Amino acid sequence: MSTQSHRIFLLRAYGDATIALHFLANSHEKNNYTVIASSHLRPLIKALSSYIDLSSLKIEFVDFGITKSQLNLFTNRHLVSINTIHQVIKLKQFVKHNPNNEGVDYLEQEKKSTLLNLFTGHSFKAIVNKQVYTDMGDFFISTVVIPKPTSTINKVLIVPDARISARRIPENAIDYIKTQLTGTNKSLQVAYFNKDNEHKLQTESQYELVSYANFEQLMALINDADFIFGSDSLPIHLCNALQKPHFILYPNNGSTAFFTPFCMANKCHANFDKFSSTHFPI
């Protein structure tokens, strides 16, 4: 990679931003990039900076009107709406009034990047085409440290929620984990996102049901645990960034595109229907 000044536009979901920033922070090429982050990512990046060093990165926050988890144009659910038009116009105006004549403007993923280029008249290039962690590592000439399996696991955490409802861990899988831990000396927390409830919802004989309302609380729960079960969503990528051993549970026919290096190296993944004692890692 040359010493030109490139820009990376973070416009997608929180997991994409977490992965990109983690790789960039560990890259010898980081001085060649400026991160243009949608302002909806500011709370995530602020919380993340408490656990990984982002101080050397050049990050500029810009309000592109994104109020959901990512640019509407990248979704199917919110694609056709007036807000989508407003977001694309804001992005188009930004690149027009802030031209990058010395380098390349990059997006996290290839998915729908052609459509974005068509609507903005710009030439964004995608970093990821297939496997997110592999492609990010190759692009930034960077590696991230894979969490080490530990033989001392006292605190187990389940984070069932996911942005996409089909990826949420079902109750039968949660009950299976509870059953496997019954009679052991391991404590268990099950954490749900629910900003309207208090942090601790209830305590049962074998586990705690807790609620988190923001990224700080979620990361604190992850950081305090020894092992985490999560869906194919943001919490798993935070586990990777915070160096916590973890296990991905995913729906049938789910993609491996976002599987972490830890899960791939240690075979710590199973779909909902086939999750059994042969897959149980602890």
Score class of each variant (00 low, 15 high):
Gln70Leu: 02
Gln206Ile: 03
Lys46Ile: 09
Cys239Ala: 11
Pro99Gln: 03
Ser5Ile: 03
Asn214Ala: 12
Ile59Lys: 08
Val156Tyr: 04
His199Thr: 07
Thr34His: 01
Phe64Ser: 04
Phe229Lys: 12
Ser38Phe: 04
Gln202Pro: 00
Thr18Met: 09
Asn214His: 09
Gln202Val: 04
Thr114Asn: 11
Ile228Lys: 04
Phe140Trp: 13
Asn252Ile: 08
Ser27Asn: 10
Ile153Thr: 14
Val104Met: 04
Gln243Asn: 15
Leu11Ala: 06
Asn271Glu: 15
Val80Phe: 05
His28Asp: 15
His78Ile: 00
Lys30Arg: 14
Ser27Val: 08
Asn32Phe: 00
Glu60Met: 07
Thr75Ala: 02
Leu118Thr: 10
Gly137Asn: 12
Pro235Gln: 12
Asn252Leu: 09
Thr18Ala: 14
Asn185Cys: 09
Ala213Ser: 15
Tyr133Arg: 03
Ile228Asp: 07
Lys244Leu: 12
Pro235Gly: 08
Tyr192Ser: 06
Ala220Gln: 15
Lys186Phe: 00
Asn252Thr: 10
Ala265Leu: 14
Thr203Asp: 04
Leu181Arg: 03
Leu242Thr: 14
His237Glu: 08
Gly103Arg: 00
Asn253Trp: 12
Leu234Ser: 07
Ala37Lys: 02
Pro149Leu: 08
Ala241Gly: 10
Lys46Trp: 08
Ser81Leu: 02
Gln202Gly: 01
Ala17Ser: 14
Ile177Tyr: 03
Leu107Ile: 02
Ala47Tyr: 09
Lys178Thr: 02
Ser233Arg: 10
Ser151Ile: 12
Phe272Ala: 15
His269Gln: 15
Phe280Tyr: 14
Ile45Ala: 05
Cys268Met: 14
Phe139Glu: 10
Phe280Ser: 06
Pro147Tyr: 00
Ser2Ala: 06
Asn252Ala: 12
Arg7Thr: 03
Arg42Leu: 11
Ile282Ser: 03
Phe64His: 01
Asn26Ala: 13
Thr3Cys: 04
Lys111Glu: 08
Thr203Tyr: 01
Val132Gln: 02
Lys111Trp: 08
Lys96Ala: 07
Cys268Gly: 13
Arg12Phe: 01
Ala162Asn: 07
Ile45Trp: 00
Asn253Lys: 15
Ile236Thr: 13
Tyr133Gln: 05
Leu209Gln: 09
His86Asn: 00
Ile36Trp: 05
Phe94Thr: 00
Lys186Arg: 13
Gly103Phe: 00
Gly121Asp: 14
Tyr33Lys: 07
Ile36Asp: 04
Asn32Pro: 05
Ile282Gly: 03
Ser38Cys: 12
Thr184Asp: 10
Thr3Phe: 11
Cys263Leu: 10
Asn72Trp: 04
Asn32Ser: 12
Val145Arg: 13
Thr3Arg: 09
Cys268Pro: 15
Ile36Thr: 02
Ser142Cys: 11
Leu91Tyr: 00
Asn252Phe: 10
Ala191Gln: 08
Asn72Thr: 05
Ile282Glu: 02
Pro245Arg: 01
Pro147Met: 01
Ser55Tyr: 12
Asp273Arg: 14
Pro281Lys: 03
Ala173Arg: 06
Ser50Lys: 14
Phe259Trp: 11
Ala166Leu: 13
Pro235His: 08
Leu115Asp: 06
Asn83Trp: 00
